[in-house]
Every structure is written in structure tokens, then in C-alpha cells.
Design a protein around this nucleic acid. Structure first.
Lengths: 306, 306
DNA sequence: CACACTTACGATATTCGTAAGGATT
DNA sequence: AATCCTTACGAATATCGTAAGTGTG
């Protein structure tokens, strides 16, 4: 492909050349680069061979650049700088000081924990670009496959051959109620059977929130038929607060709204647990920045749970 | 001085890395760069060691760049281009396609042969910068010592320990006369004795033209006392043409004015020869461009002489 | 089980340092 | 004679290719 015959010098050789150009002495150069005099002589000889030109006029008394040598000094300086730059850029990436993290997350997470974590991440690593895709599981997997996102935050192991799943945590469900609600008087866990007759607000059928709520009702051979169906957690919160009904939500999603004007109680019997995990491309490493983001997500989601 | 530890990869290693990044296959890369598969594996392993980072995620089935690898691809491309650029620049210099030639020349030459040669040189090597210093011998040597000029064109071997002298040619003297002059009727050589009583126009005492004319008169125990003393050959020409007198000039200097309105005859007895040579710094190579300029000067000065 | 990369290992080539040689001041 | 670079040569190191090992699909 590249017909260009590349030379076989190393950046170190160029450095030695530059030192010699400055000192004008093989002996001093040798001392400076911790080599024998003859080794320096050899390095220069090989450079001159590669360029098929003398780089220095040398007698025992003096070492001076030739015209070609002067040109090569400029070039070697550029190459030396460029080499250091290359090393730095790679270091930067591995030390999470530059780069980009993009992830997909379920609506219930994208509206709650994820922004929280992203804010913390952005504060700690201000030069990392962040991207969040708010999608359901299905499209999220495609984004991972296509490499559009580094990883996806999902509720279930997709178990595809080309994707890896790493569990992060799991959260149970809570019931969100208006402050004055009759069930809001106690703090103890509720049984799902106690809430089947209430007016429910939930999310659309394809969402995991709705799927897991359905499953809980199914345990009691009941169908879950929410009165209201809205797409955003924030809307649910507002509606509950306004007294339009109650909502069965995963603990993590609820944690970010429960502080204002609503009450929550744990739901058990059955103790539905929504698993939370990270989906990545199989056999592909996450960038260090993405790894750090996953670490933060694990930390945050487990910290908020009992 | 440079505390920077430079890596020990070669431009060739970077090329192999780039090929692997493109092909995504060690096997195909090996074929393309004419190496064994294991050698390619080794090259990449060494690069990764130098960067202390994995550059590729590899299974037996796939080879993909990591985030660090993607960054390094950009850097390696820049380095590859920069390396080729360095090679080219040095080639350019050695092939006289770029660079600069600066020289010092005696007034009598700087006004005659030298511009002629410079014009020819400039036509053949349009990208070479040219500089001409019009000075007497003394200052010319200093310009050579200081490296301000590549070489000086002088009339005598300075015989300094730090300067080299290379003879180019030598030119005899001719008498320049108005066309109707009584001595202009013949073409045969004149004897210096035949011109001692004429009205002479010459150059100032420190010039080589004047020194050599003085020497010729001295051979006959006579003092050379020109009636007019001017600094420029062109002025001498104009004055001779106007009939104000005659001028004893070196053949080369005369050659560039004799075509219009004046006659010339060779001067012998004694046959004064002004040597012409190139003065350079001892133990310093001339740039290829300067060498070429010297070659042209030798060619031109010898071609014009018998 | 077929294919692709990694690792092991012996052969070759390169690089290094010591020491002798040659040139300049 | 002293100083500095080059060359010679043996030792250490690095690189390459063959071939066996390992993991993936």
C-alpha cells in the first residue's frame, strides 16, 4: 500500500543528532546521552547513510553541520516535538483527560440517576465530551453494535452473541403517593395486593418500568391496567403530587422525585427486582473514560439502594 | 539536556501499525509489509509497550483499534508524513532544488563574469536564492570566515591557515582603446612598453586590477600613474569610448565591454597573469548548490580565455 | 475443527563498549 | 604530545522466521 520506504532511525537517534548539532562534539554528546563515543559515531553514520548525505563536516578539532545537516536539524526538531506530542495524546486518553463517552440509557434512568452521575463526571473530567441517548432497550443494543455509544445501561441481560452484559445492581419497586394518601401514614413495606385497586399512573408498555409492574401483577394473576400512561418520570411525579393517582416505580427512578411533595413505600410480595446492567460489544475494550463512567454509575446506583 | 525519554520505534514500525489499523488483520499486514505474522505481532507488542497501552482489541476473529489506538493512528499518520517531508527536504538540498548560494567577488568580476554566471544559474535552478557581495579581497575573506558567504572569488591565494584556496583560471591583460586609436589598427599583442606614455584610466589602488597593472609597469622600472581613477568597470568603458584615454584591464573584465565601441589588444612583455580562485573555509564542505556555482564559474571563466 | 493471533525458541543481524588507529593542532 | 573522531572486534541485545500453543467462531 505505502510504497514509501521509511527510514529505520528511532526518535532517540534524532535526539542524539540534535545534541551533537548543539554541542559540536561527539565526546560531549556521548556523555550527555550516556553512550560511548563510538556509539554516537555509529548513530550519526547510520543517519547519514539513511539520508545518503553527510550531516557534519568533522575534523578532530571541529564538528559542524553541513547545509543538508542544517536542514535536517529543523526537520528533526519537528519530528522530536511531534513524537512527544504523540506520546502525550495517548497518555491523555488513557488518563481520562480527553476523549468522549457516549451511552444509551432507559428513559427511567436517563431522566434520573444518569444525569446526576454525568454531572459528577463532568465536574471531575471537564475535558471529556459526554453524550446521552435516551432509548428503550432494543434501539440501545443497536447503538452499541454500531459503536455509536460506548455502552448501554439496561434492565435485562440481552444475551446476544455479540454483546456482553455486566450487572451493576438491581432495584426494587416503591409506590409513589400524594402526601395525604391513606397508605402514606406508615413506612413499612406494602404488598402489591394492597395497591391493585388504586388508580395507577405508569409508563408505556415497551418500557421496563411497565414490564416489571406487569410482572408483579401477573404473580397475583391480575392484569396491570394503569389509568394514565405517560412517557416521562417528571410527568408522573407531577401527576402523583396533584393527587391524580399513585405510581409503582423502580426505587432508583423514585429516589430522584420523592424529596418533594410525595410519599413512598417499598413494594414487596413479590419483591420485584429490576436488574441493572451495562451492555457492551463483546471482545471490545471500553475506553478508560467509559470505564470510569461505568464505575461511577455502579457506585451511585448501589449507594442509593439498601 | 533533553530529559525527554524518546521512544525507540522506527518510522517503519509506525507504518506497520498504520497498515494493521487499515487491514484489521495481522496476516494481511504481514504479507503487505513482507514480514512474518509473528514479526508483525512483535512490532505491535513493542509499540504497545512503549505507549504502555493496548492499541488493538484482538481476538482470533477480529482486530480493532482501541480508543488509544485511534488517537495514535492520527499521530502516526502525522509522523509518517513528517518523516517523508524530512527526507524530501534533505534530498532537495542535495539535488540543488532548494537552498541558497552567497558569494563575494572582486569588483572587476562582480561587474562582469559573475552576473553572467548567476543569470545562467538562476535559470537552471530557479528555486535557489542567490546573493552577491561586491568587495575587495580583504573583507571577502572575513565574509568567508564568518560564514556569511559560501565562498569568495579572488585573484590571489590568501594562504591563511583557516582558509582553502582552489585555483579556477587565470587571465592576462588587454588594452582597451577607442575605436579610432592609432594602436587599434593591428590585432597582434602589444608590449607594455608601448603603452606607458598613453593616458590611462584605471581602478583604485586596493583593487587587484590596479595592483597587477602596477606590477607590469614595475617590471620595466616604471611607476603606473593613471590620469583617471574610477571605481566601476562600466565607467571605464564609457570613458575609453569617449576618447578620454586607454585602460589596461584583465581579459575577463574587458570581455564584457569590448563588444561595443572599443578595441582591445593583448598586453605582453611581461605577460601578467591574474590568477583566479575560490576561497572557502578550511575543512568545511560547500553546499551542493555552491559547488555547482563554482563549477559554472570555472567553466565560464576558462571558456572565455584562450 | 478451521482459522488467526500469541508464544517459544534458535538463527541472524544490529548495537554497544573497549581498544587501537589516524589526523589535527 | 595531546586531543578527538573513526575503525576493528568481541559481547550483549534485538529482531526475525519456523513452529507449536491457544482461543474463537
Amino acid at each position: 500500500m505505502l510504497i514509501n520506504a521509511q527510514p529505520n532511525w528511532t526518535p532517540r537517534d534524532l535526539d542524539i543528532f540534535l545534541v551533537l548539532a548543539e554541542t559540536g562534539s561527539f565526546r560531549r554528546t556521548a556523555a550527555q546521552v550516556h553512550l560511548s563515543q563510538s556509539a554516537v559515531s555509529g548513530v550519526i553514520a547510520r543517519l547519514e547513510e539513511a539520508l545518503t548525505t553527510r550531516l557534519f563536516d568533522r575534523t578532530t578539532r571541529s564538528v559542524h553541520l553541513t547545509a543538508a545537516g542544517q536542514v535536517f536539524v529543523e526537520q528533526a526538531r519537528l519530528l522530536s516535538v511531534q513524537t512527544q506530542e504523540a506520546l502525550q495524546r495517548v497518555q491523555h486518553i488513557t488518563q481520562i483527560q480527553s476523549g468522549k463517552v457516549s451511552l444509551a440509557a432507559l428513559p427511567s434512568l436517563a431522566a434520573t440517576v444518569v444525569p446526576q452521575v454525568m454531572a459528577r463526571f463532568a465536574q471531575q473530567y471537564p475535558d471529556i465530551e459526554l453524550q446521552l441517548h435516551d432509548t428503550l432497550s432494543g434501539p440501545a443494543f443497536d447503538l452499541v453494535r454500531a459503536g455509536t455509544v460506548d455502552f448501554a445501561l439496561t434492565a435485562a441481560n440481552p444475551d446476544y452473541a455479540d454483546l456482553d452484559y455486566t450487572p451493576l445492581s438491581a432495584d426494587g419497586f416503591v409506590l409513589l403517593m400524594p402526601l395525604g394518601h391513606r397508605l402514606a401514614k406508615s413506612q413499612s413495606p406494602l404488598n402489591w395486593l394492597q395497591v391493585t385497586e388504586l388508580t395507577h399512573i405508569s409508563m408505556p408498555l415497551p418500557t421496563s418500568v411497565r414490564q416489571y409492574a406487569n410482572a408483579a401483577f401477573m404473580e397475583h394473576r391480575l392484569a396491570f391496567k394503569p389509568r394514565y400512561e405517560v412517557e416521562h418520570i417528571a410527568t408522573i411525579h407531577a401527576m402523583v403530587k396533584a393527587g391524580l393517582g399513585v405510581a409503582a416505580l423502580p426505587e432508583l427512578a423514585a429516589a430522584f422525585v420523592q424529596q418533594s411533595g410525595v410519599a413512598t413505600r417499598r413494594l414487596t410480595g413479590p419483591d420485584i427486582q429490576r436488574p441493572l446492567g451495562v451492555v457492551t460489544r463483546r471482545n471490545r475494550s471500553l475506553s478508560p473514560a467509559a470505564q470510569e463512567m461505568v464505575r461511577m454509575l455502579r457506585q451511585e446506583t448501589t449507594a442509593l439502594l439498601p
